[in-house]
Amino acid sequence: MSVRSKVIDAIQQIAKEQHVTLPALSDDLSLHETGFDSLAFAILVARLEDETGVDPFTISEDAAFPATVGDFVRAYENVPA
């Protein structure tokens, strides 16, 4: 499974659990518009860390939290192996 589909799967799973109705997940959708609150993002980052072994937001201290879904996915894709 590609990194992108892992991320999208996890978003959809958490949305289901949190009873959040997601809009279509296009790359330029702002994360704010996903309807996720900070707790939902915290859950997402923790689960992706368990699945992929990385947490791109803790590794790099100066990394700004992404603004869009596309930025978020790329943060995981661009982590050096």
Binding site: A42, A46, T58, F65
Partner: peptide, 12 residues
């Protein structure tokens, strides 16, 4: 608790 870059901590 587990550290979280978003909320400081989450429950696991």
């Amino acid at each position: 608790s587990r550290k979280s870059p978003i909320t400081g901590g989450i429950v696991v």
